[in-house]
């Protein structure tokens, strides 16, 4: 692909050309090594060491940190919560995003405006949105509970104070931010499907559902896969929403892996546990990224 598009035919790997390429790539690569690869390696190595509160290496202890981590019930609780967070998050984003896309794929007046309004939650700075939701969720003065009371829910909860409602409240915000991306991506996918296919389907007597099932879904499958993979990575990594809304509280019950790792390092001063959990996270993300890269290059 690249060879084709880079223009004229040349001998493979002209030496002068390669040298220029490496020189041009050098700053970026050096930068990435110092600020990304080195830290990752550092964390992985740290996970096999006993370290003091400031993260200084003391002694090699093999898998000791992992034994501590895996022996901690809390880790498993948080791992399960992370899976629930990610799976439910991506699922709802996908379904609602698809509904938006299907609605916006119909030609009507004001469609452009609707699309513009739709992407605002995605366009707005995530941390600021999360801060604003604190106000929305406010028990006494917030308009959410006020509205809920108006529509007949007389006893709305103190959203961020209890485990279950706080988790739901945070997940809602994450979903709310993630929906527009899905909707826009799916819409682009839908618009690439030629109308003739639906016409042909209609002639063959396919109903709305069957057309969706046998024409739409197979044709936007590549879009669906890449979008859900990306969304899964973002949802899994969503630190700021949880941190700003609940800081993982009350007592770690709304933590996901990412926030819990951060807390272990910066709040509980347990860098080794943070490093071990970080390494586990790294492996999980690596598998995800490999999948993503595979699909990406395949679709290309």
């Amino acid at each position: 692909m690249y060879e084709m598009r880079t223009g004229i035919a040349r001998q493979r790997f002209n030496k002068k050309e390669s040298t220029i390429a490496y020189v041009l790539l050098f700053p970026a690569i050096a930068f990435l090594i110092v600020f990304m690869f080195y830290p990752v390696v550092n964390v992985i190595v740290m996970s096999f060491f006993k370290v003091d509160m400031l993260g200084r290496f003391k002694a090699f202890i093999g898998i000791g940190n992992y034994q501590l981590l895996f022996g901690n019930v809390k880790f498993w609780e948080i791992l399960i919560r992370t899976v629930v967070w990610t799976v439910v998050g991506v699922l709802v984003k996908t379904v609602v995003g698809m509904i938006y896309a299907l609605l916006l794929n119909v030609k009507f007046k004001g469609r452009k405006i609707a699309r513009t309004l739709l992407i605002i939650p995605w366009a707005a700075p995530v941390p600021i949105s999360a801060i604003l939701f604190q106000w929305v969720y406010n028990y006494d003065f917030g308009l959410l509970n006020h509205t809920l009371k108006l529509i007949g829910i007389s006893n709305p909860p103190l959203w961020l104070a209890y485990t279950k409602t706080a988790f739901i409240a945070a997940l809602y915000v994450d979903i709310w931010i993630g929906i527009p991306f899905m909707a826009v991506v799916f819409l682009a996918g839908l618009q690439a499907i030629p109308d003739e296919l639906y016409d042909a389907g209609a002639i063959d007597g396919a109903g709305v559902f069957n057309k969706f099932r046998y024409i739409t879904i197979p044709l936007i499958r590549p879009v669906l896969i890449v979008a859900t993979l990306l969304s899964a990575l973002w949802t899994f990594n969503d630190f700021s929403v949880i941190w700003i809304l609940t800081r993982g509280g009350p007592i770690d019950t709304t933590d996901i892996l990412i926030t819990w790792i951060y807390k272990n390092y910066f709040v509980y001063y347990k860098p080794a546990i943070a490093a071990a959990a970080g390494t586990v996270t790294f492996v999980i993300l690596l598998v995800f990224s490999l999948l993503y890269a595979r699909f990406y290059f395949k679709e290309e």
Partner: peptide, 10 residues
């Protein structure tokens, strides 16, 4: 896809 959190602790 690297998580900023992991980078940060190092």
């Amino acid at each position: 896809m690297f998580s900023p959190i992991i980078i940060i602790i190092a």
